[in-house]
Write a protein that binds this DNA or RNA. Structure first.
Ligand SMILES: [Mn+2]
Ligand SMILES: [Mn+2]
Length: 403
DNA sequence: GCCCACC
DNA sequence: GGTGGGCTGTTATGC
DNA sequence: GCATAA
């Protein structure tokens, strides 16, 4: 009995894909195994490939389950089937990474076997790595924002885009947010696509200032929807359509029709329900590739709005740092201990005043927690104290540490 | 999840 | 032969 | 050049 006995070899379109530990339970709550996950992606392959196919992507690998931290892998494993395509991205620093490009159902199965749960492609095609063919409107509700308000913002964004000649295709993010995808003719570089996205974000925030914000500084966003335009910068990825998200309920980033958006909720769309939905009604985003537009309209609006005006004498907000930790759980434990010691002020804190940040570290995220004390009466504000938990993401190999 | 360097 | 480390150190803005 | 965010 060797280890390979606990593997299953699937034949996918004439290609053999080895799935190790097919019976491993990946999602205990709905009881989904690794093989179930592979079969899900094969069943929705048409939609999943429309979202991620032909694009270089980062492998976000949950090899120890959805409750453990994932690691990110840009460079394709050296040992891979010859039918796995790749594309080499180059960075300003002079470094590069040969990333996986999924092009068919077999490749989908292969990346799931590596421990990928969601797919995180770049907004470019392998054929043109410098000019995105997709503008991504990443709508991130700050804590406390209702779905209803998020949808309002999505519709405003849709209006602005339509006025500027662009078609927006909505999907749930699979977490709390909404993504709008806009297919572009690949004629503009990242700089301009990002500028277009920022312009859209500013315009949306101008139209519904109570509901939406384009503020980069997190503590200034308030209880609003952050239109995360920077997700259109180079080297940023977004979970693609039909991606399963690493959450207990196996939620899926699900393309919807615009008239579904208001009446449905993200938690309705899981591996089980999306399988059924996809079989019955197919992909609402099926037409996206025929909708490619141009950025002229948004870039004209950029000129109309002018440069971002900054508030020279703005008071810095009273933000204190609570924890830095290798895992979200550790960081939140620290927050709980801090709360226990400062019970008196908790009533003043609003949901959006607790800032939980996933920070890019080496091959993984680490977590930071801060608290914005703006709603706490000045006299009652706790001082910055030593961190409840501390963590040095660059411990070990530091720049300048070489033999 | 899996390779590979190291013991 | 078994074990354990590595697997993204980018990008852009604002001060 | 440092901090800030994804
Ligand atoms: Mn988002
Ligand atoms: Mn975001």
């Amino acid at each position: 009995m060797s280890a390979t006995d606990s593997a299953e070899v699937l034949e996918v379109d004439g290609r053999e894909v080895r799935i190790s530990h097919p019976d491993k339970v990946v999602f205990p709550e709905p009881g989904l195994t690794k093989l179930d996950l592979v079969r899900y992606y094969l069943a929705v392959a048409d939609g999943a490939l429309r979202g991620a196919g032909g694009r270089p992507m980062v492998l976000k690998r949950f090899v120890k389950g959805i409750d453990r931290e994932a690691f990110f892998q840009k460079r394709a494993p050296d040992k891979r089937p010859e039918w796995i395509d790749t594309a080499t991205l180059h960075y300003a620093r002079g470094t590069s990474a040969e990333e996986v490009v999924v092009r068919d159902a077999a490749a989908l199965a292969w990346v799931v076997n590596l421990g990928c749960i969601d797919l995180n492609p770049h907004p470019v095609r392998a054929e043109d790595l410098d000019r995105p063919d997709e503008l991504r409107v990443d709508l991130d509700p700050m804590p406390g924002v209702e779905w209803e308000h998020l949808v309002d913002v999505a519709f405003v964004a849709r209006d602005v885009l339509a006025e500027r000649g662009l078609t927006a295709w909505p999907k749930t993010s699979g977490s709390r947010g909404i993504h709008l995808l806009v297919r572009l003719e690949p004629r503009w570089e990242f700089r301009d696509v990002r500028l277009a996205a920022e312009t859209l974000a500013r315009e949306v925030a101008l139209r519904v200032p109570e509901l939406a914000t384009a503020r980069w500084w997190k503590e200034e966003r308030g209880e609003r929807v952050f239109v995360d335009f920077n997700q259109n910068a180079k080297d940023r990825t977004v979970a693609s359509a039909y991606s399963v998200r690493p959450r207990a309920d196996a939620r899926v980033s699900t393309p919807l029709d615009w008239d579904e958006l208001r009446v449905r909720r993200p938690e309705e769309f899981t591996v089980a329900t999306v399988l059924e939905r996809f079989a019955e009604r197919g992909d609402p985003m099926a037409g996206i590739d025929e909708s490619a537009g141009v950025l002229d309209g948004l870039l004209a609006l950029a000129a109309e709005l002018g440069p971002v005006e900054r508030d020279a004498d703005a008071e810095p907000l009273p933000v204190i740092e609570i924890a830095r930790a290798e895992t979200k759980e550790e960081a939140l434990d620290g927050l709980e201990r801090w709360k226990a010691r400062h019970g008196g002020i908790l009533g003043h804190l609003r949901p959006a005043d607790v800032l939980v940040d996933g920070m890019r570290g080496s091959s993984s995220l680490w977590y930071r927690i801060r608290v914005n004390l703006q709603h706490v009466p000045e006299a009652d504000r706790p001082e910055q104290e030593p961190l409840e938990v501390d963590y040095d993401p660059w411990k070990g190999r530091r720049p300048g540490e070489e033999a």
